[in-house]
Design a protein around this nucleic acid. Structure first.
Length: 619
DNA sequence: ATGAGCTAGCTTTTT
DNA sequence: GCTAGCTCAT
């Protein structure tokens, strides 16, 4: 069991290599979500779902919640759908179906949201859909309530191995607990200093209290590091030592001392990007391949500055994360067509494409269909058919709607009776729906790109045996499992870099507010800060040979120039393992060492010495 | 029904 | 700087 698809793939490869041809049946090696999805499809009826249920993404979740809020007269400006979903997700991670939620009476939000959760869950069942949380929650409930099912799986899984155990949440650990019930052979690997997913419900106590839950546990401490040089390890260890809440460990490495960790100061974000690219161009690239270089950031938007710079000088790069391929509008449209053909109860897909391309079916028509569907307990497609029969659709919309419904039937015929492959099916759909024509008619660069993306999608689909497998992949795929071929510099968030390693790691943007992130501290105080520090620890320890940390005094953010000051984490780095450079003002000095000397309390309004110097200079 | 034009709010991290 | 969501003219 792993957390990310990337890690799962890596493990598949390694295990296959060891087992050789015996590596068949690795189907139970995967992420929590993919394995649960597999189990759930087998036993879907136990939670009132069809085995062809749709897995919806956060976009669909938000649309669904918005619809519910509208119906329930809840102002989404007062109570944002994201917030509602966050609370619902929290409940799901704790293993509560709506009736099991115990509302904190003092919490006004929870009191309002619980009824919404109930409706939301009912809607999902009606749509024959699951959200991410359901994949695990439903599976656990099935195992809990159906002893026979539980018996089968807990008997058959003789050994269970789990990676990154520190990031499991309650429901995941519960699941493992049920699965390991019979054989009690469970091996979990983790590092409390690398727990960075508390915002997703991860509970470090699963890791810390493992030996209390599972009797006769053997604890094996792994303190030998095979990855990083001594200097890198010292910097990381010193930093993480500032956390109060940790088990504590002394890492030793077999690697040599290596280069000092670099700490660079820049004037602004642009300079920082230039500085990083210069460093790569002048020094790094001679010794290391691009694939072994990574730029790890706190928030994905930070990659933009680097992207611009790298495009300008023609340096190859890849960005892992951000807008994922399957999240692009045109791709989601294609997938929505396929989803609806595959599963007629998928109202969210229906809504997305009913008027895309334009079929003169507007808001009011859609509203009527919704109303009719609700009154007669039908899905949107069935409701439309009934309304057409009863002549309840306005003339103009009627033409478009009949066309749409007829097309759907034809496509299902192509798929089910004529057995067109899923690739062929999408080609037919794009052609006959007028979607391709719509893009071809508007000849700008954007649409050109969209067509290219669709071509890429068609290509990607070929790798899957059937529509079912493809749709499952789409819902569970994430950014990190895209292409890794070619020689390119890697850019991603530190979260996404978990479990990966590179020879050279750049860690830009170490500024107060950005890293540690303001929101994190605002929302979770000291705990949030410690998690940010663990994130920094994860970032640094991705490096094998060189780590280069940097910050800038000024940054363009959300359309404004913001003055910034060095991150408090920078004060926590041990001087003797550092090499400090200022690229602050090239005219005055280029490589002179500068003194941070930040032994002062950081409070609101205080500025770093660098910032103060900067202010003096510009005066 | 549709599209242009405007404004408010926003980005932390992801299966 | 970007976009979802709103208003207004057609």
């Amino acid at each position: 069991m792993t957390f990310t698809n990337k890690a799962a793939k890596e493990m598949q490869n390694r295990v296959s290599k060891i087992l050789g041809s015996a590596a068949i049946g690795l189907s139970w090696l995967g992420t929590f979500h993919s394995i649960c999805a597999k189990l759930l499809r087998k036993h879907a009826s136990a939670v009132n779902l069809n085995s062809n249920f749709t897995i919806i993404d956060s976009d669909d979740q938000i649309r669904l919640i918005k619809n519910i809020c509208k119906a329930e007269n809840i102002d989404v400006k007062q109570l944002s759908p994201r917030f509602i979903l966050a609370i619902i997700d929290r409940w799901k991670n704790k293993g509560y179906y709506p009736p099991e939620v115990i509302v904190n009476k003092k919490d006004l939000y929870e009191k309002t949201i619980l009824p919404l959760y109930k409706i939301y869950q009912q809607k999902l069942t009606d749509l024959n859909s699951c959200d991410f949380g359901d994949l695990i929650l439903h599976t656990v409930k099935i195992l809990e309530y159906n002893l026979d099912v539980r018996e089968i799986y807990s008997k058959n899984f003789k050994y269970i191995l789990v990676d990154e155990y520190q990031d499991t949440n309650f429901i995941q650990s519960k699941w493992l607990n049920l699965l390991s019930e019979k054989n009690k052979n469970i091996c979990c690997v983790g590092d409390d200093d690398q727990s960075i997913y508390s915002w997703r419900g991860a509970e470090i106590k699963n890791f810390l209290e493992f030996d209390q839950v599972y009797k006769n546990t053997k604890v094996i401490r792994l303190e030998q590091n095979y990855r990083s040089s001594q200097n890198i390890l010292s910097v990381a260890s010193n930093l993480i030592a500032n956390n109060q809440n940790r088990v504590g460990k002394t890492l030793i490495t077999t690697m040599e001392e290596g280069d000092l960790v670099q700490l660079n100061c820049f004037k602004n974000g642009k300079d920082e990007a230039v500085g990083v690219s210069d460093e790569i161009e002048k020094k790094i690239k001679k010794k290391f391949s691009y694939n072994n270089i990574a730029i790890l950031v706190r928030a994905i938007f930070q990659t933009r500055e680097f992207e611009e710079r790298f495009l300008k000088i023609g340096m190859p790069y890849r960005i892992l994360g951000g807008t994922k391929f399957y999240e692009r509008a045109e791709i989601k449209d294609c997938v929505a067509y396929l989803r609806l053909i595959y599963q007629e109860r998928d109202d969210l897909a229906f809504e997305r494409i009913i008027n895309n391309p334009k079929r003169s079916i507007g808001e009011s028509t859609l509203k009527n269909i919704h109303k009719f569907a609700k009154e007669n307990n039908l899905n949107l497609e069935r409701a439309s058919i009934k309304m057409l029969e009863k002549n309840l659709i306005k003339p103009k919309a009627k033409i478009g709607l009949s066309l749409f419904i007829n097309s759907l039937n034809k496509w299902r015929y192509d798929f089910k009776i004529k057995k067109s492959t899923h690739v062929k099916l999408l080609q037919i759909v794009l052609d006959e729906s007028g979607y391709s024509a719509m893009l071809k008619n508007k000849k700008d660069l954007d649409n050109q790109n969209r067509l290219e993306n669709i071509k890429e999608l068609l290509n990607a689909m070929k790798e899957f045996d059937n529509l079912e497998n493809f749709l499952e992949h789409v819902s569970l795929a994430t950014s990190v499992d895209q292409e890794w071929d070619g020689e390119k510099i890697n850019m991603m968030t530190m979260h996404a870099a978990k479990g990966l390693e590179f020879d050279v790691v750049f860690l830009p943007g170490w500024e107060e507010g950005l890293f540690p992130h303001q929101k994190s501290i605002e929302e979770k105080g000291q705990k949030g800060l410690e998690e940010e520090r663990r994130l920094a620890y994860v970032g640094i320890t991705r490096a094998k040979k060189k780590a280069i940390i940097s910050f800038s005094m000024n940054r363009f953010y959300q359309g404004d120039w913001i003055d910034s000051m060095a991150s408090r984490f920078i004060d926590e780095l041990p001087e003797k393992h550092l090499e400090k450079n200022s690229f602050f003002d090239e005219e005055i000095n280029d490589t002179n060492d500068f003194d941070f000397n930040q032994d002062f309390e950081i409070e609101e309004g205080t500025r770093s010495p660098g910032w103060i110097r900067y202010q003096k200079r510009i005066k």
